[in-house]
Simulated assay, not measured.
Amino acid sequence: MSVFFILIRRQALSASTAPLDRALALGGAMLPLMVRPAPGPLVPEFVGATLMAVGVLVTIAAKLSLNRRFGLAPANRGVQASWAYSIVRHPMYTGYFIVQVGFLLTNPSLWNLYVYLVAWSVQVARLFREERWLLTDPEYQAYAERVRIRLIPGIF
């Protein structure tokens, strides 16, 4: 689905060409792939599997919401303010986080914790850089005022 949406995506109204933005996008997408299975889940496996399934559904809803606006590096392809994006400003990242928490709870290891801490740090930096870019658009500014939650309701 991601590849399909990238292939048919809209022309960007504006896009960042900053190397840091591209590096954060790549890191946010690739770092989580470095985790590995570990013995001894901290929770029953169905709990972790349920979290992972919910996270995947949130991510799919976010991608379907974006549709032709989907991309990796910061770009303004028009503001999406409905469906998943009416709840939080970055539902795709929320979905990734839920999946990763589920995986970590069923595959606890210092390595996996370290990988996710680094990956989450990169994703938060990516989120801030992306918002800095998008906040130059008055339509996104209005959207950000309406949808105050960036990532996790009640927390951030």
Rank of each mutant, 00 (worst) to 15 (best):
M52D: 00
M52P: 06
M52I: 03
A53N: 03
G55V: 00
G55Y: 00
G55A: 03
G55N: 00
V56C: 10
V56D: 02
L57R: 08
V58M: 11
V58N: 06
V58C: 12
V58W: 10
T59S: 14
I60K: 10
I60E: 03
A61P: 07
A61M: 06
A61S: 12
A61F: 10
A61N: 07
A62T: 07
A62S: 11
A62Q: 03
K63G: 14
L64F: 11
L64Q: 13
S65R: 09
S65N: 13
S65V: 09
S65Q: 09
L66Y: 06
L66P: 02
N67P: 13
N67Y: 14
R68C: 14
R68S: 15
R68F: 09
R69Y: 06
G71H: 05
L72M: 10
L72G: 14
A73V: 14
A73M: 10
P74N: 05
P74E: 03
P74R: 03
N76K: 06
N76Y: 02
R77P: 06
R77L: 01
G78P: 04
G78W: 00
G78F: 01
Q80S: 08
Q80E: 11
Q80Y: 02
S82F: 11
W83M: 08
W83L: 12
A84Q: 01
A84D: 05
A84C: 02
Y85W: 08
Y85K: 05
S86V: 02
I87K: 07
I87M: 07
V88G: 08
H90I: 01
H90A: 02
H90P: 02
P91D: 06
P91K: 04
M92R: 08
Y93Q: 10
Y93T: 05
T94H: 01
T94K: 00
G95E: 02
G95D: 04
Y96T: 05
Y96Q: 07
F97D: 02
F97E: 04
I98S: 03
I98G: 00
V99D: 01
V99R: 02
Q100N: 11
V101P: 01
G102I: 07
G102L: 01
G102R: 00
F103M: 08
L105V: 00
P108C: 10
S109R: 00
L110N: 12
W111K: 06
W111F: 09
N112L: 06
N112H: 09
L113W: 07
Y114S: 15
V115P: 06
V115I: 13
V115L: 09
V115W: 06
Y116D: 12
L117D: 12
V118S: 10
A119T: 11
A119D: 05
W120D: 11
V124E: 15
V124T: 15
V124A: 14
E130N: 07
E130M: 04
E130D: 13
E130V: 08
E131R: 11
R132P: 09
W133L: 15
W133F: 15
W133V: 14
L134H: 10
L134M: 09
L135Y: 12
D137G: 09
E139R: 14
Y140C: 07
Q141Y: 13
Q141R: 15
